[in-house]
Structure formats: structure tokens, C-alpha cells
Amino acid sequence: MSTAVKSGPAATDSAGVTYRTPKKNRSGWNVLGIVVTVLMGFPVYWMIITALRPSQEILSYHQKLYPSSVTFSQFKRAMDMPNFWDNVKSSVIISAFSVVIAIGIGLLAAYAIGRFKFWGRRGLIIALLVIQLIPATSMLIPIYIQLNKMGGLNEYWGVIVVYAASTLPFAVWMLRGFIVNIPKELEESAMVDGCSQMTAFRRVVLPLLAPGLVAASIYALMTAWNEYLFAYVILQDNDKYTLSIWLLKFTGQRGTDYGALMAGSILIALPVVIFFLFVQRKVASGLTAGAVKG
């Protein structure tokens, strides 16, 4: 039915789906499901408890599966690392701008592709798909050289432009999937009632597109927040690095400070996980279905 649901990160989960299967004995499957959950979730659990336990338990030859006491000292040490707040600022600025740019530009293009037939449409779609297939690392070298010429090295805008551009193709593709699934009749009836195409878009399509926009934004946000390679190559000052690069500081020549590293990791992952969990349901809610029937 919808490509967006299949390819979009957030839209894919179907927590809201109800099953009409007859009552069956599911306990065997449930046990298996729990085992899988434990195995998949264990590294996450290990990260969390390592961050919460005292240092002497971390550097121990007798690791326990649960902490004997809970302390936030690892978090404190992580946040006391030099440049933590500078790098939070870098990450926020870079992610926010690249998401807004990618989604803004992407929405326009997705609407054109999803609703209009125009010369070059197919070519554009193919270009969008082809670009996604090229490993980002292969563009690293020329982008580095080009930004060097344009004075974009060690500047936020250099990274923002790269992130916005690299998330754009998939964002367009995702949004197009959502737009195609919004019945055209809704827009058409608005236009019969006297709206212009653009007004119909703003008043009718945009509100229905909210889940799609959220899904595409999550995708762009996660990409920008988690990216490290371009940030590492383009940015050069300690106070301009993003949080992903900041993580590298915990590994020194004399070994790795695992407690602070795990605490730092949580600090970085937390905003994304919370955001993801929070908007997940919104994405899954079938807004369009109601709009057509109602």
C-alpha cells in the first residue's frame, strides 16, 4: 500500500495494529520473544548499568550483571570533560539547521514529484535513488577539497550543507510516499471550493502530512546527530566538534575510560531515543484513513 511505511524508519513500526488472529497458545513464542529482546537489549543494558556503577566495579576482573550501588559520578565526570557543552551546542546547531533545510527543500520537491507530471520527473526519481546508492565516503575527498577552497572547513555551515544534502534524497523519497497516499480528491474538492493549488496544499495536505514530516525529520535528525566522519574531517577545533567526535576523547593512549564513555554515550543517545519513542505513535496513527471515511 505505501512505500513510505516500508522504507521509512519511524513509520515502519505498527504498534497500533490490532490482530484478528484467533486465540492461540502463544506462550512458547512469547518466551522466544523475550529471549530475543534480552539478547538484543543486553548491550543497551550493559551501557546503562556501567554508566551507573562506581568506577572500581567497572575496572574489575569480576564483573557483576547488576551494580552493587548506583552513582551518577560517571555522568558528572563525562560532563566535566573539556568542551562538552561546546560540543552539545555544535551538535544542536548543526542538526537543527540541516533538518530544517533538508525537510523544507525536500517537501517542495516531494510534492512536485508526488502530485505533478512533468518532463524530467522520472529522471529526477532515478537521480534521487542513484545518489543514495553511492557510499558517502566516496564523496568525502572532493567535498573536503571543495570546502577547503570555499573556506568551509572548520565552519558549521560546511557540515550543515553536507548533512542537508545527504539526507535530502531519502527525505524526498519518504515524503513522496506519504504525499501519494493522501487522496488527491481531498485537495481537488478544496480546489473546487475555490482554493488555489498552494492554498489547498497548505490547508489540506500539510496537516495530513504531519506524520510523514515527523518521520522524515527523525530520519534527518538521526543522520545528522549520529554522523561522525564528515564532522571529523571538516571540523578541526575542539570546541566545534559534534558530540560523536567528543566521544573519541574517552579513548586515550593509556586505555579507555569506560565508565565516563558509557555515561557520555547515554547522554548522546538519550535525546534521540526519547524523541523517537515519543513521536513513534504519532507516525503510526492512521490520519488519512479517518479523513477519507469521515
Partner: peptide, 8 residues
């Protein structure tokens, strides 16, 4: 797991 940054 999905939301975990790669380096994390």
C-alpha cells in the same frame, strides 16, 4: 538499539 549512535 536503532537509535543508538554508531559510535556509541
Amino acid at each position: 538499539v536503532w537509535a543508538m549512535p554508531l559510535l556509541v
